[in-house]
Nucleic acid binder design. Structure first.
Length: 831
RNA sequence: GCCCAGGUGGCGAAAGGGUAGACGCGGCGGACUUAAAAUCCGCUCCCCGCAAGGGGGUGUGGGUUCGAAUCCCUCCCUGGGCACCA
């Protein structure tokens, strides 16, 4: 062999240029598992960090959307580990719910079997991602060891009256054959199956979330929640300040001498020309006069029969009928007719509304239709008595308002409210749109509500020591509209603990959102059997520092969990006010421009990608797609780019650095590699902190690009090269845990890379020595000059003005101003 | 109708009022190869120009500023939420 000179291009690279992802995935997952590398200990002395991802419903197969939720949060949790925290990043399954029961009805599989086999499959799929989950902490809500504590918490809430039973109109989903909470009704349709929801009056169990309405509006305890979610919750709670004001109906000699209405516009009280009462209101019957009876009854009946979709349509023309009775406006003595109309809702305010057609569009339309007076009491600017074409809802000046004429609306409101209160006709109040949480479900696959009905003792709670009330395994699944438990004699019939007479169990089960309202607490001590959670473990881990999940839960799970937390706090079970300190909502991965779903047939499974390209490639690709909170359309077009890059990392990390010492190290080359490495560390750590995985990856790619070029250009030294490789591997480890672990081992570094601290950066080394100074004339770029980063202002300005490219623009012009932005640009303003 | 988020190359996207398009995909050209794949190198917003260079450009129209993708106002479009809540 001849003594060839080693040219840069001929420098030896790794013979093995591509790695085998299946081999690496299997090797390291088995090793981590065997070593319990990710076991989480309560007594670890490092500061704790609880990073929680919304647990999945075990629907059967994991799709790419699950990975999109789980992989980045896993990377973030790993990042925190490497920052030196004792990180709890648990996983479990939201295992109760309708799909399991529907599968039972359709295919004769027991919900338990269906659920548990799905969990097994999904656990395997999740594990293929190489996550940091400590599976010893897994929770499955459908198991008695979990749901008995739902029952226990229910009993605590019952004691304080926060859990109560009431007969109320409920949202009924005819397809799911159960009632739904308000939050589960979207556009008068079932959130789950899209069926049109109807109404049913039923005895139901409620949780008194409205008691916490005011506190739920206070987001100050939440360090970092998306504005969007806070706005959605605020709107959902729907706080309105107003006045409850009564109208006199004493002329009828009923039990009630007055009816109460709620208004946010007490300033318009002199414009009342009628009163409207909701069709379901108990007073309707008594207010209806004999001659109006037939018509009113027919109207009420028709309103009841209507579907919610029809009734809630804003497009629909207003309708109503006169009851025959009148109410007296105490401020001016006016006697106005009382109507029944379905545009007034029983469940909001007092269920009775004062009609002010001049200043409320709904009342305006109603008045037009039924020929009622439109009396202007708030004069629009420049109004001179002409007829209104629509309601004037904006501000103005009080007119036709007795002693309050001439006041601006804001003041009129206050003065009239004072006047009303002083006379005892009403008082200022606050109304909320939020309703109590209806938790009864007429289904089998959920937590049995631990209550009994005894003929002598009435409603009796199951004794705590008798918990759990177990779901019987042998129930018949029939879509009857009633709980299958109702037909299970053994379950149904029990002895009353109070009087030993025969009693019957409550056969409804709890909404599955009850499970998820406190599951974060269970992870602290998942096998604890003296209570829902070990108080000491909970004190150590909670509240959750970082929560991640989809925004679709904004007004359901996320609000219920906040409510539960406050209720548990008031029971003395936890000490903090909010369960989830920080919240990050990842976006949605869509396919064919639609959300992925089995019924649409557009579900993308990660499995084939994982087995072909490896978990690291899929993880990296999902994080590189774009900003995590934005989601996006799934396309595998770019996924090869990630495989290509990880193979480049594979190649670069294994180059034999000892060959570098044979050459003369070039100061500038060494310095420039160090600068690039330190800048990358700074950028990546900053980005990872804020879930900006895509730009963190871009920065790592730039580093590998630089390293590849620098290697070819020569002049490096081995220590600096090794340091750059080490930094790159450490930064990449949270995102691509398998390949980095392998490279870490191959380079002779101690197992495991995932127990290493993050690399440090040195501001001094990261600093640029030379910068590109942009020279503008009147804001337009005319030149770019390389200058020392330390350049003084005067020198920078002078160099800029002397630039040959700039000179022509300055000739004969007057220099008005020279703007200097250190490290960036000089802008010469000429006139 | 109201509230929120967003609109940037062929595509995914980047840009803390200061070089628009980093990074990646795709495309084009080249090296290696008998060939292909893989890999590596180069080019890749549009228009004029051989070039140097010039002009235009971040949904629309205006404004603030020495300077705007970024801040303010108008309108249009897309996605999400709420919707007869008095």
């Amino acid at each position: 062999m001849s003594q060839e000179e080693v040219t840069p291009d001929a420098r030896p690279r790794t013979p093995e240029r591509r790695y085998d992802p299946q081999e690496l995935d299997a090797k390291w997952q088995a090793r981590w598992d065997a070593d319990k590398l990710y076991q989480v200990r309560d007594d670890d002395p490092r500061p704790k960090w609880y990073e929680l991802t919304m647990y999945p419903y075990p629907s059967g197969d994991l799709h790419i959307g699950h990975w999109y939720a789980m992989a980045p949060s896993d990377a973030h949790a790993r990042f925190r580990r490497m920052q030196g925290y004792n990180v709890l990043h648990p996983m479990g399954f939201d295992a109760f719910g309708l799909p399991a029961e529907n599968a039972a009805i359709r295919r004769g599989i027991h919900p338990y079997q269906w659920t548990m086999s799905n969990i097994e499959n999904m656990r395997r799929q999740l594990s293929s991602m190489g996550p940091v989950y400590d599976w010893d902490r897994e929770i499955i809500c459908a198991l008695p060891e979990y749901y008995r504590w739902n029952q226990w918490i229910f009993l605590q809430l019952y004691k304080t009256g926060l859990a109560y039973r009431a007969n109320a109109p409920a949202n009924w989903c005819p397809s799911c054959q159960t009632v739904l909470a308000n939050e589960q009704v979207v556009d008068a349709k079932c959130e789950r199956c899209d069926s049109a929801v109807s109404r049913r009056d039923l005895e139901q169990w409620f949780f008194g979330i409205t008691r916490y309405a005011e506190e739920l509006l206070d987001f100050s305890g939440l360090l970092d929640w998306p504005e969007r979610i806070k706005t959605m919750q605020t709107n959902w709670i729907g706080r309105s300040e107003g006045v409850e004001i009564s109208f006199d109906i004493s002329e009828y000699g009923l039990d009630e001498s007055e009816i109460r209405t709620f208004t946010t516009r007490i300033d318009t009280i002199y414009g009342v020309t009628f009163v409207v009462i909701a069709p379901e209101h108990p007073l309707v019957d008594r207010l209806t006069t004999a001659d109006r009876r037939a018509e009113v009854d027919a109207y009420v009946e028709q309103a009841r029969r209507q579907s919610e979709v029809e009734r809630l349509s804003t497009e629909r023309e207003k309708s109503g009928v006169f009851t025959g009775s009148y109410a007296v406006n105490r401020l001016n003595g006016d006697r106005v007719p009382i109507f029944v109309a379905d545009y007034v809702l029983l469940t909001y305010g007092t269920g009775i509304v004062m009609g002010v057609p001049a200043h409320d569009q709904r009342d305006f339309e109603f008045a037009k239709k039924y020929g009622l007076d439109v009396r202007v009491v708030i004069a629009p600017d420049g109004w001179n008595g002409e007829t209104l074409q629509e309601a004037h809802v904006e501000d103005g000046t009080q007119v036709n308002s007795g002693p309050f004429d001439g006041l601006p609306v804001a003041e009129g409101k206050e003065r009239i409210a004072d006047h009303v209160e002083a006379n005892g006709w009403g008082s200022r109040t606050v109304s909320y749109r939020l309703r109590d949480w209806l938790i009864s479900r007429q289904r089998y696959w959920g937590t049995p509500i631990p209550m009994l009905y005894c003929e002598t003792c009435g409603v009796v709670p199951v004794a705590e020591e008798d918990l759990p009330v177990l779901l019987p395994e042998d129930a018949q699944f029939r879509p009857t509209g009633e709980s299958p438990l109702k037909y299970h004699e053994e379950f149904l019939n029990v002895d009353c603990p109070g009087c030993d007479a025969s009693a019957q169990r409550e056969t409804d089960t709890m909404d599955t959102f009850v499970d998820s309202s406190w599951y974060h607490l269970r992870y602290a001590s998942p096998r604890y059997d003296q209570g829902p959670f070990d108080p000491e473990a909970a004190r150590g881990w909670l509240p959750v520092n970082q929560y991640t999940g989809g925004a679709e839960h904004a007004v359901m799970h996320l609000m219920y969990a906040r409510f539960f937390n406050k209720a548990l706090r008031d029971l003395g079970l936890v000490e903090y006010d909010e369960p989830y300190l920080r919240l990050f909502n990842q976006g949605t991965i869509i396919a064919d421009r639609q959300k992925m779903s089995k019924s649409r047939g557009n579900v993308i499974t990660p499995d084939p990608y994982v087995s072909e390209l490896g978990a690291d490639v899929v993880r990296t690709y999902l994080m590189f797609l774009g900003p995590w909170d934005q989601g996006g359309e799934w396309s595998d077009a770019g996924i090869n780019g990630m495989a290509r890059w990880l193979n480049r990392v594979w190649d670069i990390a294994q180059r034999d650095a000892s060959t570098l010492d044979a050459q003369t190290a070039d100061d500038e080359a060494v310095r420039s590699l160090a600068r690039m490495a330190h800048k990358t560390v700074r950028k990546v750590e900053d980005d990872m902190e804020r879930f900006k995985f895509n730009t963190a990856l871009a920065a790592m790619m730039e580093l590998t690009n630089h390293m590849g070029r620098a290697w070819d250009d020569g002049g490096l030294d081995s220590a600096e090269w090794r340091d750059a490789v080490e930094k790159l591997l450490l930064l990449l480890a949270p995102i691509a845990p398998h390949v980095t672990e392998e490279l870490w081992e191959r380079s002779g570094r101690p197992y495991s890379i995932h127990n290493q601290p993050l690399p440090q950066w040195d501001e001094e080394l990261a600093r640029d020595e030379e910068i590109t100074l942009v020279v503008q004339v009147n804001g337009r770029v005319r030149d770019r000059i390389q200058v020392a980063a330390s350049i003084a202002e005067e020198e920078a300005k002078q160099l800029a003005m002397e630039s040959g490219r700039v000179q022509p623009y300055l000739e004969g012009a007057q220099i008005r101003q020279v703007i200097y932005v250190p490290g960036r640009l000089v802008n010469v303003v000429v006139g």
